[in-house]
Design a protein around this nucleic acid. Sequence first.
DNA 1: CTTTCTCATAGCATCAACGCTATGAGCTGG
DNA 2: CCAGCTCATAGCGTTGATGCTATGAGAAAG
Lengths: 97, 97
Amino acid sequence: MSESWQELRDRRMAEPGAAEAYEAARLAYELGKAVRAMREERGWTQSDLARRASMTQSAVARFEAGGTMPTIPLLERLAEALGMRLNVGFQPLREAS
Amino acid sequence: MSESWQELRDRRMAEPGAAEAYEAARLAYELGKAVRAMREERGWTQSDLARRASMTQSAVARFEAGGTMPTIPLLERLAEALGMRLNVGFQPLREAS
DNA sequence: CTTTCTCATAGCATCAACGCTATGAGCTGG
DNA sequence: CCAGCTCATAGCGTTGATGCTATGAGAAAG
């Protein structure tokens, strides 16, 4: 499972310019997971969150599944609904193994 | 100058659901400023950065000016070009001011 | 088996970001 | 005055995210 992730990563990294695309997809996936976790933490259904974030249940499902690359305004609305703050910025490259 | 920003903010905040839109616009503006700072720090022209990030000079200018809401993949490419890491996530709401 | 709730997915329309080309403004140095 | 460089901006076509509606799968309860 973790092994296949590494392989996928290496394969994609071989293609030029695919590193960012992969990173972006990874980000979408992780953001979806994070929102789902926070939503369930609050005992909300997708419809609940959707209403609070001025969107539809289908949009929430799509986002949580990482099906699309979320836009900043969407993330902002979700953050607001969840009582969180959206953080977007650049960090110095950490040399992690 | 700073006064007009406040007025704009207050006016927009009055409309429902505009808080996130404002925050998003603010984010776009700040990201543009940050990238410009990092670019100049490295002594690069917009064309230099554009080449490294696989985009055109006009796209860099548009982004730095905060003219559009940047997408995650774009930010990822810029981060890569600048040797930085893009960070996107949610933070607990801090009660500032 | 039927109802209900939750989530996933599809199809479609709209809208905005992005790539691209071209051009103009501002500055500097010849 | 005339390049040359840097940045800003406009127009246009393409692409993809989002909003919306509708429907299906799966589980739980009756």
